[in-house]
């Protein structure tokens, strides 16, 4: 029942992007997103689109796979476009009943659609080429300066990675409990809101109990394996910048500068 969520799930293959240090990809995604909101001209959008196309090419992930993930949010995209299309005041160029489309609205809607698609595609490129573990590692490493002001950086990243590990397990469990309660006549499809909330009790109580039991077990298993926080820990896969990562930072810098330039010039 949860199979349809493929948006941005890690795609296992070998590519230049897969091999990049996750910190580069994380920083790069931020730079890309900021640049996306910096540009405001057709030339600028073209530049972003070209950059994205190059990244997709470099990622070795089939374009069809990426687009299939987009399907789930296509609806959201359409609504946004319609709002902009018909609700932006300006010079009317087309009318159907009470629906009025303005020139400004059309231009704004296209830009918005472009911006949203580029945003989603761009950030999914990161998650498609980076495992969740690498991502949390990168976050831990990038946030390290925050340790000085007593932010528990290691603990936060450990929690994130454990949460990611248990999401599929708990989803499967939800499915199982739901089926078992349906077999006892439970109705999870009621349209009445009060009934709907009430019907969740037989699902949520067992789910919480199970989650707590798992947490307890896992804590004990971690202790038994000598886990005692981040102090004195070594890393099996430490993050070390390679030549290609430095090149990538260079490319990112150039790209960012170019985006600002389009804003200034056009």
């Amino acid at each position: 029942m949860f199979d349809s969520i493929t948006l941005g799930q890690y795609y296992q293959t070998d590519s230049a992007l897969h091999r990049l240090d996750p910190r580069v990809k994380l920083v790069g995604t931020f730079a890309y997103l900021i640049a996306l909101f910096v540009v405001d001209s057709w030339v600028g959008y073209l530049l972003v689109a070209l950059f994205l196309a190059a990244m997709i090419r470099l990622s070795n992930v089939p374009f069809r796979y990426i687009v299939r993930g987009m399907k789930t949010i296509l609806f959201l995209l359409l609504i946004t476009v319609c709002f902009n299309l018909f609700l932006t005041p300006g010079e009317v160029i087309w009318q159907f009943g009470f629906l009025k489309m303005s020139r400004e609205g059309l231009s704004f809607a296209i830009k918005m659609a472009l911006r949203l698609s580029l945003l989603i595609l761009g950030s999914s490129i990161m998650t498609l080429t980076t495992t969740p573990t690498q991502l949390t590692d990168a976050l831990e490493s990038l946030m390290r300066p925050l340790k000085k002001i007593h932010v528990p950086v290691h603990e936060i990243s450990m929690m994130m990675s454990i949460a990611l590990r248990f999401i599929p397990i708990l989803m499967e469990e939800t499915d199982k409990i739901m089926k078992a309660q349906i077999a006892r006549g439970a109705d999870f499809e009621s349209r009445n809101l009060v009934k709907k909330i009430k019907s969740l009790v037989p699902l949520l109580v067992p789910l919480f109990i199970s989650a707590f039991r798992r947490a307890n077990d896992l804590a004990m298993a971690m202790e038994a394996r000598c886990y005692r926080g981040g102090e004195g820990r070594t890393k099996m896969k430490p993050l070390v910048y390679q030549g290609r990562d430095r090149v990538a930072y260079g490319v990112l810098l150039l790209y960012f500068a170019a985006c600002i330039a389009t804003r200034v010039i056009f």
Binding site: P132, T133, D217, R233, T234, M236, P238
Partner: peptide, 24 residues
């Protein structure tokens, strides 16, 4: 299910050695 910490098999096996400070 309740004793595997990492999302990749080899990383889970490495968890214990990491905790006791074994070099990479």
């Amino acid at each position: 299910d309740n004793q595997i910490i990492a999302q990749v098999v080899e990383e889970d096996v490495g968890f214990g050695p990491e905790n006791i400070g074994v070099p990479t």
